[in-house]
Write a protein that binds this DNA or RNA. Structure first.
Length: 884
RNA sequence: GCGGCUGUAGCUCAGAGGGAGAGCACCACCUUGACACGGUGGGGGUCACAGGUUCGAUUCCUGUCAGCCGCACCA
């Protein structure tokens, strides 16, 4: 094992560390829930990525946030379980295997046959299924791989069957001939939410349909003239005076010899188009309803492959797109086309392949939503589910209030085959938990199983409990279900979260999780969505390769704010890498200064000096702040608190203060500082561990007397013993003084290496005592070889002067100082102070403010005014004494 | 049409009813015994606009404008 030490590189190298550390954790069983229940159970199920997919930044963000939540609870003493797994991703996986089949062998799945094809997909899964889980490991995810699940595992398949059959028996799953969303390219039905609507420019064709009796014509308006061969009526609004006389008459459908009736239906909007609506029940969901109301026939003129049927006569065989033009032209030639009007409308596209979705009449299986949505809704409204951020709760409820039945059958081969068998003898349907060999009605053995499989989201909806062994009553289910938190992107709120909720409520009687944390998308540097087609994607594995997993994690977690998108910028990763390197080097510093014989001891308050007291106060405040943010899943804010403490307070200030004690002669002082350094570092590493687990573990392993692994260490408690407002107040004065001197040095261009003399004139003996106490710090930080501290007195004219609370700091610079510049600087300072004083005087002169503002606010403002006023007096004095 | 998000420094973004913040970029200085993936100092913002509530608003409310996103869609 490499140890950070003097002999080692000053730059942390994640590549030499991460694999080894991960293997140590995984082989050590650290990711499995501890046996003793400790503070209680805390569990998360991982949103299962596509088994044959590769990791993208969205997964990386999602996994990082989950890992932070899990590692935090593990350190805090909970028995934690994070269940990983993958999803069979029906359409995507099938499409990929079909593609390779085509490329390599020039075959289609139909050439292979169902059984062989499915076997081929399983082989594919064996071969590529491990990629993404390996990538999740590379990220450092502390999930329990011994419990890894796949949606098509026997256990989970059993759960799917149980749910399907139960819902069928309850009448909540039914088979029906209805209009569904059909993707002609994927050749399967889709649910409503798998359709993406996009605004497109279209044409509204006005077409004249002549009356059979020759007494005139009605003009309908349609964007889809190619569907007119399946028209079965023209509808007008019953109250539309223009068309009263036409209701009940027959029209002759142009381009075909059929006649269709004019009907009246409230659905028609008289204001739109011509007020006459052609009714095509098999090709439009609204027309389907109208047709059903009026008992109209359902004719189909477009097939499942998107081409026109024989019903279209001469147009049969054309694609939908070709037919639209051809039909419009034919209508124009024959004088039926009255007008072409530009018309913007939203067109549905297949979420997966982008093909325009066809409303298609077919036999499909549906989940009846009302009975499932209602109880879920009631529980959500009763506050049984917490959303972070809260606004998603309303969006979630609105969706559940309006859901329509869920089409769950897919015309694919890869997935959970629908457990329904049709009898060729009597036509009955047998739905069963076990495979069926004979009809449950007539006992015939001439039964065949439904060809379709279930929507992948059907099995995902059961994930929180199916992964735990449901429907069996397992120990895990008992202990870890319902789960504590679900972390996922807001983009699958409806697809996944909502469905888990109603399935969980229905089948387990409880919400499947208590809290849902929704994060945003990771976009590219310009704010655009990353996509393969745009080629703007960033591979997380490249980031890990170049900067380490910790840097990637820290970048993603730091730049997240609840529910909002973030942009991926390489410079941010660089910043994270730099921070990690800073931690590494601060640790090296501590290690090389502890000495070989170091044994941590309890801190003895009396031995602590001001800087020690200050850093411990800051530490406990940081612990409290980080814990509070993590408790409410505010990952970004927690990270910021740690970053500021680590870099500013610990590295920039405390380590520099510590050097005084460390390099001094006082052995006891030295021990004391070593103990403080050790305490702060170990606790800081623990705080940081959920975000940057690798580097913190690596350092932890090198620290003396740390037993075991950091992954299983203890989260620090903020200790009230370390609260020390007095030390903080004093230190902030000291730091102000140091900054003031640095400022003078920089402005007067005094090289840092050039030492100076200093004279601090205090207002009171108390102030003098304070500066005497921190004399070493001031001299070291200001590089002052000579420091005089007095009460009152007069400084030489040839000095640069800074005024701080309670004192004036003079740096005598006879001959070196441009007094004109110094006077200018003082006047600038005077101006600043005057404006502050005026602002506060105005505020305090306001009677309303004095009367109504809280007393402590008024007091604080008065104190500020007094401070500024005193400084102003001092600055003016100085201006007078340096006047020419 | 309904609903939501965003608008703060050149860039990317935090923040909060009471003196405008960070990182990066920029300028100047510094090889000080953890770190140049570093240190010190500095410049830079009417917190989109207009009203309202309040002693006090960049923060809360309403509206406007701009950008983005859901949901529902009338052919």
């Amino acid at each position: 094992m490499s140890t950070p030490s003097k002999s080692l590189s000053t730059v942390y190298d994640p590549r030499s560390v991460e694999k080894r550390i991960y293997a140590m954790w995984e082989n050590g069983g650290y990711f499995q829930p501890r046996a003793d229940i400790g503070k209680g159970a805390y569990s998360i199920v991982m949103p299962p990525p596509n088994v044959t997919g590769v990791l993208h930044l969205g997964h990386a963000l999602d996994s990082t946030l989950q890992d932070i939540a899990i590692r935090y609870r593990r350190l805090a003493g909970y028995s934690t379980l994070w269940v990983p797994g993958t999803d069979h991703a029906g359409i995507a996986t099938q499409a990929r295997v079909e593609q390779s089949l085509k490329q390599e062998e020039g075959k289609t799945r139909h050439d292979l046959g169902r059984e062989n094809f499915v076997e081929r997909v399983w082989t594919w899964k064996q071969e590529y299924g491990g990629t993404i889980t390996q990538q999740i490991r590379a990220l450092g995810a502390s999930c329990d791989w011994s419990r890894e699940r796949f949606t098509m595992d026997p256990g989970l398949s059993k759960a799917v069957r149980e749910v399907f059959v139960t819902l069928y028996e309850e009448g909540l799953i039914y088979r029906g001939n209805r209009i569904i969303n059909w993707c002609p390219r994927c050749s399967t039905a889709l649910s409503d939410i798998e359709v993406e609507h996009e605004e497109e420019k279209g044409i509204l064709f006005h077409v004249r349909y002549p009356l059979v009796d020759g007494s005139g014509a009605l003009t309908i308006a349609t964007t889809r003239p190619e569907t007119m061969f399946a028209d079965v009526a023209v509808a007008v609004h019953p109250a539309d005076e223009r068309y009263q006389a036409y209701i009940g008459k027959e029209l002759r459908l142009p381009l075909s010899e059929r006649t269709i009736p004019v009907i009246a239906d409230e659905y028609v909007d008289p204001e739109f188009g011509t007020g006459c609506l052609k009714i095509t029940p098999a090709h439009d969901p609204n027309d389907f309803e109208v047709g059903a109301r009026h008992g109209l026939p359902m004719l189909q003129c477009i097939n499942s492959d998107g081409k026109l049927t024989d019903l279209a006569g001469a147009f049969a065989g054309l694609s939908r797109e070709e037919a639209r033009l051809a039909v419009a032209n034919a209508l124009a030639e024959q004088g039926f086309l009255v007008e072409r009007e530009e018309h913007d409308h939203a067109v549905g596209h297949c979420e997966r392949c982008g093909t325009v979705v066809e409303p298609f009449l077919s036999d499909q299986w549906f989940v009846k939503m009302e009975a499932l949505a209602q109880p879920a809704l009631e529980r959500a409204r009763a506050g049984e589910l917490t959303f972070v951020p809260g606004r998603f709760g309303r969006i979630f409820e609105q969706w559940l209030e309006n859901v329509r039945d869920w089409c769950i059958s897919r015309q694919l081969w890869w997935g959970h085959r629908i457990p329904a068998w049709y009898c060729d003898e009597c036509g009955a349907i047998t739905v069963s938990r076990d495979d069926v060999t004979c009809c449950s009605t007539c006992q015939s053995t001439r039964v065949r199983q439904d060809e379709d499989v279930l929507d992948t989201w059907f099995s995902s909806a059961l994930w929180p409990f199916s992964t735990m062994g449901w429907p069996d009553n397992t120990a895990d289910l008992e202990r870890f279900y319902p789960t504590s938190t679900l972390v996922t992107g807001y983009d699958i709120l409806f697809f996944w979260v909502a469905r888990m909720v109603f399935m969980g409520v229905h089948f387990t009687g409880t919400m499947p999780f208590q809290t849902v944390v929704l994060h945003g998308l990771v976009r590219d540097a310009k704010g655009q969505k990353m996509s393969k087609s745009k080629g703007n994607g960033v591979d997380p594995m490249d980031v890990i390769e170049k900067y380490g997993a910790d840097a990637l994690r820290f970048t993603l977690a730091t730049n997240t704010s609840p529910g909002n998108d973030q942009r991926f910028v390489w410079e941010k990763v660089e910043g994270s890498r730099n921070f990690i390197n800073k931690i590494w080097n601060a640790s090296r510093f501590v290690l090389m200064n502890l000495g070989d014989d170091f044994a941590p001891q309890a801190l003895r308050v009396l031995e602590l000096d001001l800087a020690d007291q200050w850093i411990l106060d800051r530490l406990q405040a940081t612990i409290a702040e980080v814990s509070e943010h993590l408790n409410v899943y505010d990952f970004g804010e927690a990270a910021r608190a740690m970053y500021d403490f680590a870099w500013d307070d610990f590295c920039d200030w405390y380590i520099e203060f510590a050097k005084i004690g460390l390099y001094g002669e006082d052995e006891q002082r030295k021990r004391s500082v070593q103990n403080v350094l050790y305490t702060v570092l170990t606790q800081l590493l623990t705080l940081l561990h959920p975000y940057i687990p690798f580097v913190t573990e690596e350092i932890w392993q090198a620290l003396p007397k740390t037993s075991g692994a950091l992954v299983a260490a203890q989260w620090p408690e903020p200790s009230t013993n370390w609260e020390n407002a007095d030390a903080v107040r004093k230190m902030s004065l000291v730091m102000d003084a140091i900054r003031a001197v640095r400022n003078v040095r920089a402005e007067l261009q005094l090289a840092p290496s050039k030492s100076v003399s200093m004279r601090i004139e205090c207002d009171t003996d108390r102030d003098k005592a304070l500066f005497e106490q921190v004399r070493d710090m001031i001299q070291r930080f200001c590089h002052a070889d000579d420091l005089v501290i007095t009460v009152g007195g007069t400084a030489p004219v040839q000095s640069a002067t800074q005024v701080v609370t309670g004192a004036r700091i003079h740096i005598p610079l006879a001959g070196l100082i441009d007094m004109d510049a110094e006077r200018e600087r003082l006047r600038k300072e005077e101006k600043r102070l005057v404006s502050e004083v005026e602002r506060l005087e105005k505020k305090l002169a306001n009677a309303g403010f004095i009367a109504k503002a809280p007393a402590d606010v008024v007091a604080a403002e008065r104190e500020k005014l007094a401070d500024y006023a005193a400084k102003l007096v001092a600055v003016r004095d100085r201006i007078t004494s340096v006047a020419e």
